[in-house]
Design a protein around this nucleic acid. Structure first.
Lengths: 214, 214, 214, 214
DNA sequence: AATGAATGAGGATTCATTCAT
DNA sequence: AATGAATGAATCCTCATTCAT
């Protein structure tokens, strides 16, 4: 496919269909093990059509990477509420991240399964998130609600926990509703960074006052 | 290779050399992207010799998986001290796990990069670890030092945090000595599961009394 | 395309446009290396339209061959003047052939570049020319102006020289006006077959009396 | 095949065998129409072996081009005898060229059939030949045996005639022994450039005195 | 007539594996 | 044990041709 071919609405759909089928297959069995013919079969079209929409297999992979990057970026903005306390923001941000990742499971599966090929995407995608966390944690350290540790290290832990629980949820090893899981993870990270019992209790009381009871 | 071929000492060395080269290449660029010729070249032998030592490429991979499983098992036993409190055991176990994973970085790299192909190994390798954690957490909940949450969920969080920080360390994104990192992670997980400030402070005081100062 | 589809004047133009674009591309990069899409792009129409005007790629090629054949035939008649001497006819025929080939350069390029696929066309196209030459040479041998050699061999030489110089001219390796080149080639072939100095001088005097001075 | 792999004598043979088979097939039906599988079948080996000896199809083609260039160069030196007169040298050089080209028919077939892809080879291969001819012709013009015309144009005619007759011979349209044909072509070109009857007669007498009678 | 998406047979290339030496 | 040439199934990609609109 020539770089800048204009696609009709129908063409966009077809292309998206191929992208979706490919994402699923890549996540399931990996890039190398996914044949072009598997993708087109999953989409129910002829092999040649693949090359109408994509230069080659790798180009499709890169488009996927691009759309994942977009998805990641879209999520980042929504998280923080300037009016709330750091711990509350941490709670809410964690909750929404877990839900977002669960709802975009195939993309994140792919990201992790094909990590080697997505190094850039992952780096860029997580970087902003981590920066936000670092800000939050520093604010919490200022007001005494977050314990005095290297903020970057703490932030890495928070982001890692969110990712880990999402992953575990995705692989079906947790038998919990998504909101329940999200709330649990939010509590988990609040505990892991909070300086002490009082601040934790306060933060949890604030979020549960407006959200679901703990 | 016929399954029960007896190898001389020299032969064992040759074979191990091939295994090592393969492990490195697999971790670096993945199983599918690693050619048999890459492995033999890295080992400096002729292509045909590969098939003297291994039935085929997959057989080598399985041998690698086997040795990784062995390594994992070896680590599991060392963790728990029946005389210590649950939180102290959690602290010590976390510390030693982080160090163990850092010291066997290539194997864990491979495990994660080739997760799809190591599902069994990972399941089995982590399962016992998680069971131990669950026991520990239940004990902590009994004596009031660990907060009342689903023990399995908490255990998953602990194991995940350990793995996550090891991974981050492996990829060079943390500029910290290994003991420092291990201590940090141990504090992190103690915080994340502990019921309150008092229990955390007690646990940390106990471990730091016998180990490095916080 | 159904064989006997009637085309409007506009349709004929469209078709000719496709033929011209194809001829150019074929001459430039060969039949096999020219894609249908290249042709339609050069003509600025959609791919599907190609098959409205031509059964398939080969059919277009054959139509080209046909028109080349027509061109070749048209040229043949014009050459000989029954009143002139053989050497003069040779001179004049050579001159006009060179000019004709230069003026139909793309067709002859194609003929030569795709010789393999034009064997028939070339055979038929040259055959009559050679026959005429043989007649001419035999006549010249009878009146003593052409040397005693196998007439067919001499004829092949004449035709070859004409073709060779045209080709060289086409590829831009000669910096000479077309009339000058044609005159040179005519002299060249007269020399190559003439029996001796006297006959050559006579022939050249005759043609230059009515044409440009030597 | 890696660029500088060292080949055993046997390997060289195998490779040459593939080159020869390919040359023949290319000359017969063209590069584009020759499948890799045709080549290996002609050589009686498996498809994969092709890629042991050559990077890809095009690399083989380029090696062929290289060897053709070598052959052409080898021929160039042998031609001229400094002691002989220009016309005699022209005669002898022409004769030997025709024979050389006939003996390397497959290569020259390939050169002409795939002219488009061999532009460089042909240019370089012919250039020296033409330069030699130009020298010879200038010498002949000095001693009055060659007529006063643009030497380059005359040289082009000589080289073209040699090529043309070789081509015709190759395609079987001439029923003449090779020495006979070579002698004929030599006479043809001597006539085409000689200034007059006397010089031609002298030159032909000289060469036939030491060679075969005309 | 005209468009461009859709089709699938065909061909180049890769690479795990075998084999003669 | 060791070598590296030989094998061929599997895969990606091209492109002439068809088809619905």
């Amino acid at each position: 496919m020539e770089p800048d071919r204009r696609l009709t609405a129908q063409g966009m759909e077809r292309k998206q269909q191929l992208l979706d089928c490919a994402a699923e297959l890549f996540a399931e069995r990996g890039y190398a093990e996914t044949r072009v013919i598997d993708i087109v079969r999953a989409a129910g079209v002829a092999k040649g059509l693949f090359y109408w929409y994509f230069e080659n297999k790798e180009a499709l992979f890169k488009e996927l990477a691009g759309s994942i990057r977009l998805n990641l970026r879209r999520q980042q903005g929504a998280a923080l509420d300037p009016g709330a306390t750091p711990l509350v923001n941490l709670y809410r941000g964690t909750e929404s991240s877990v839900i977002f990742m669960a709802e975009h499971a195939p993309y994140f599966s792919l990201l992790e399964e094909e990590g080697r090929n997505f190094v850039d995407v992952m780096r860029q995608g997580t970087q902003q998130h981590i920066k936000d966390m670092v800000q939050l944690i520093k604010a919490g350290q200022s007001d005494g609600t977050i314990r005095e540790e290297n903020p970057m290290l703490l932030a890495l832990g928070v982001v890692g926990s969110v990712g880990h629980y999402s992953r575990v949820h995705r692989t079906g090893r947790i038998d919990l509703s998504l909101p329940e899981l999200a709330a649990f993870v939010a509590r988990y990270v609040v505990h892991s960074v909070a300086s002490g019992d009082v601040s934790v209790r306060d933060a949890l009381r604030q979020v549960t006052a407006v959200a679901a009871p703990v």
